[in-house]
């Protein structure tokens, strides 16, 4: 395989090594295994539990969500660290890529914990629908996140593809202020070739990769919307954000 050349003269052996490393990193750093998610898939929050979430004060539910997001982000940081080549980037670029991409990866990973058959997502141990997040007061964001998860699920990605797509989203030259964009670009290109290779193997649909890549602008729009909603919330509840939100969440998202 090492003598067989793939795109851009990268050997097929190297593409395979990159793919295997990223898939392993993904599987080691997912909060739930595929089997665990399958077992939980039909365990939904009861009517009373949903009512309880709905009747929470707005700031309490925001805090709960911030805690869950922060927890998920810690796993994404660990995923990034295990990707060969990531820790070889300069520290500035490691931080920049994570700061700008971690929430996007959390949203990609969320499709694993989304049941498209009843439009529910895993939250605090059980599945629940959009109405569970009503008290957040940002229906547009919640509904956009659910729409995104449903649309990503419709592509029926394998764990391998989710892993490589997550890495491609994270290691992106589109982020401003990179100090070594060439180095990031080289890594990104290899990840894309590996993703392309796997998708061609797994999908009959020739446009599957194009369809997947076309979801990236939505991811970025969701993160912008999240920042805007956070700013609006912070204006109304500055104390909640300053005192009760996880420090990592504030470090990543505070204006």
């Amino acid at each position: 395989q090492d003598s067989q050349l793939g795109p851009n003269n990268v050997s097929m052996g190297e593409l395979d090594r990159i793919a295997q490393n990223i898939i392993k990193s993904h599987l080691e750093t997912c909060q739930y295994t595929t089997e665990e998610l399958q077992q939980l898939a039909w365990q939904t929050h009861s009517y009373e539990e949903v009512k309880m979430y709905q009747s929470k004060p707005r700031d309490a539910l925001w805090q709960q969500c911030a805690i869950q997001i922060t927890h998920a982000i810690q796993y994404v940081v660990e995923f990034a660290k295990r990707i060969s080549g990531f820790m070889e980037l300069c520290q500035n670029d490691q931080i920049l890529l994570l700061k700008s991409g971690c929430l996007e990866v959390v949203l990609v990973r969320m499709c694993r914990a989304f049941n498209p058959l009843n439009n529910t997502v895993l939250f605090e141990g059980k599945y629940g629908g959009m109405q569970m997040f009503k008290a957040l007061g940002c229906d547009d964001l919640v509904s956009a996140v659910f729409d995104f998860a449903k649309s990503l699920c419709s592509l029926q990605l394998t764990e391998e593809e989710i892993a490589l797509f997550s890495a491609a989203v994270l290691i992106s030259t589109d982020r401003p202020w990179l100090m070594e964009p060439r180095k990031v670009q080289k890594l990104q290109e290899k990840i894309y070739f590996a993703l392309q290779h796997i998708m061609q193997k797994n999908h009959m649909d020739e446009d599957a990769l194009a369809k997947l890549i076309s979801r990236i602008p939505t991811l970025s729009a969701l993160c912008t919307l999240h920042t805007e909603e956070l700013q609006a919330f912070q204006q109304l509840h500055p104390e909640t954000v300053n005192v009760l939100f996880p420090p990592l969440y504030k470090e990543l998202f505070n204006p």
Partner: peptide, 20 residues
């Protein structure tokens, strides 16, 4: 570095899946 103290720390820490 100061601005991203926690992220910086997380990047420096050596962790295993068990720690997660």
């Amino acid at each position: 570095k100061e601005k991203h103290k926690i992220l910086h720390q997380l990047l420096q820490n050596s962790t295993s899946p068990v720690d997660l």
